[in-house]
Design a binder for these strands. Structure first.
Length: 527
RNA sequence: GGUGCCGUCGCCAAGUUGGUAAGGCAUAGCUCUGCAAAAGCUACAUUCACCGGUUCGAAUCCGGUCGGCACCUCCA
């Protein structure tokens, strides 16, 4: 059993060996809570939740730290605009974030530190960096001196030379207080209207990158196993974190493995100019076919500054959170996802069908209790656990893992339909099928625990979906039942025309009926 | 300009230390049904943007072409 993880530092998959197998340490750059988090944040959240869940299964103890950067220019700006305290604004979005994370099925991390609660550690860390000659104070600010850290640029594949060439291109505004344009602030002198703390350099607040260095070492030590975040953080945030942390500790290595999740990009719903809907399934054309507007490169990039993004709490309210989670896990975590509503609807259908199958399996097993029977492996000649583990060990390949779970559903449905003969070469007794279904259910539960899916009671999932439908249409279950009974009456009288008319009526609402021996049941159609 | 990534069925998406294309959605036919629905079965990429090369053998390696994307500035 060998876990492989793609390390941004080496740009290849590496064998993962924990520094201390009894205490695996994982740090994830969380969010800056100045606005509602969007679907892109959800991707990182979910991707690393699976990493955490999987490590939890492999090792006795995993320490997972996910921070909040609650002191930041954007927070201060937003708070000033609203006329409230920065901490209050941050607290609001942190609460929203927690709520969404829980609904997306993410386990709470071991620690969730905030910058505002880590100031003493940050000040101490900056003092160490200064002592080690890698940072210098200027008029209340403190800057990290990049030239003093030769390894700078290793993570992002840049060199100081590259950066200097870039400087020659006047891409960077020169701040005369800094010794080099690439030096970055560890501490910023207080400005009026900003939260500030006392420090040896006067009142001020931490710069952007230092907080993660301080929070990670506070809970995980100076070197630890895995550091994660969105791809956009590679430069400069993570690069600067490495520089600060190593400059302070004197170690060569800060985090052993750097994991970065890919972005969620928006599939445009329409032209930004005239809102003309783009043809479905096509790529993004050069210009709008209706108004002729030539699309800019980043028209369809999701970004908070442009406001064209999907807040996760809104998506969660609109769709089944588990469908969103499944969608996010259906691609490998490093691959970009082009998000669209059609994609979520597809996934919702898939998840709904899965729960329907789960429900059917459960009731079959209940109705056909069985104490013993053939093992899954002897019956089907494969080991689902091994296949699943192989996928997860290959850089957390959740897309492949989900495909493997899907195979279990196919086998389960086959048994439910008593259609196992073709595959197994013989008919099974109900008790034998039940025994196998019980095992399949166990595999799905176990694998679902790692992926964070298929964990809800199937009936509860299905019922909630029905209730959501009823509420949206202002109907009650009794209304539906009455129509079903009327239809049953008509059918008993062989008045199929009337029965079908009633069924059509319900179908028009978005329902489907299933006639079975025990009676007629109804469900919400997925389309 | 610098750095990195990608281009696989109508759509989504695995597979890249080379060995002959997972899975999902959609679609068609069949089974079941009074008819449906649900479920199951069957079908659905001789082919992996294009052109060369290496090789017994390439979606997977190398070179080139075209196309898309990200970061380099706050950003998950």
């Amino acid at each position: 059993m060998v876990q492989r993880i793609y390390n941004t530092m080496s740009q290849k998959k590496e064998v993962f060996t924990p520094l201390d197998p009894n205490r695996v340490r994982l740090y994830l750059c969380g969010v800056t809570p100045y606005a509602p988090s969007h679907i892109g944040h959800a991707r990182g959240l979910v991707a690393f939740d699976v990493v955490y869940r999987w490590l939890l299964r492999q090792y006795p103890k995993v320490i997972y730290v996910r921070n909040f950067t609650d002191i930041d220019d954007k927070i201060i700006k937003a708070a000033n605009e609203e006329g409230i305290e920065a901490v209050a604004l941050a607290a609001r979005y942190i609460e929203l974030y927690h709520d969404s994370a829980a609904k997306l099925g993410c386990l709470p991390p071991t620690h969730e530190p905030k910058v505002s609660e880590t100031i003493p550690e940050i000040v101490a860390l900056i003092e160490r960096i200064i002592t080690n000659g890698k940072a210098y104070p200027v008029a209340g600010d403190v800057y990290f001196e990049v030239k003093q850290f030769p390894a700078y640029g290793r993570l992002s594949g840049r060199t100081l030379l590259d950066l200097e060439q870039l400087e020659a291109g006047a891409r960077v505004e020169v701040d005369t207080r800094k010794r080099s344009p690439f030096d970055f602030a560890l501490w910023k002198a207080a400005k009026p209207g900003e939260p500030a703390w006392d420090s040896p350099w006067g009142r001020g607040r931490p710069g952007w990158h230092i907080e993660c260095s301080a929070m990670s070492s506070k809970f995980l030590g100076e070197t630890f196993d895995i550091h994660g975040g969105g791809k956009d953080l590679v430069f400069p945030h993570h690069e600067n974190e490495i520089a600060q942390s190593c400059a302070a500790s004197g170690h060569e290595v800060y985090a052993h493995i750097w994991m970065h999740n890919g972005f969620v990009n928006l599939m445009p719903e329409g032209c930004p100019k005239c809102e003309h809907t783009l043809p479905d399934g096509e790529g993004i054309p050069e210009k709008c076919s209706a108004c002729g507007y030539v699309y800019a490169e980043d028209d369809f990039k999701m970004s908070k500054s442009r406001g064209n993004f999907y807040p996760m709490h809104e998506l969660i309210a609109e769709y089944e959170p588990e469908a969103l989670r499944t969608l996010l896990l259906s691609s490998h975590y490093r691959t970009p996802i082009r998000f669209s509503h059609a994609l979520v609807v597809d996934t919702e259908r898939r998840v709904g069908r899965s729960y329907a199958a789960l429900s059917a399996m459960d009731s079959f097993v209940r109705q056909n209790p069985s104490e013993d029977g053939p093992s899954f492996e002897s019956a089907f000649g494969s080991n689902p656990t091994a296949i699943f583990e192989e996928a997860m060990e290959d850089d957390f390949n959740t897309a492949r893992a989900i495909a493997e779970v899907q195979e279990l559903f196919t086998l389960g449905n086959e048994l439910l339909a008593a259609r196992e003969q073709e595959r197994l070469g013989k008919k099974l007794k109900a008790k034998e099928r039940s025994w196998l279904l019980g095992q399949i259910r166990g595999f799905i539960r176990s694998q679902g625990e790692v992926l964070g899916v298929y964990l809800e009671a199937p009936e509860a999932y299905l019922l909630r979906r029905k209730q959501k439908f009823l509420a949206a249409h202002g109907l009650s279950a009794a209304d539906i039942e009455a129509k079903i009974e009327a239809r049953a009456e008509a059918r008993r009288n062989k008045d199929f025309a009337k029965g079908d008319a009633l069924r059509d009526e319900l179908a028009a609402l978005g329902l489907s009926l299933q006639d079975a021996r025990e009676g007629t049941s109804w469900d919400v159609r997925d389309d």
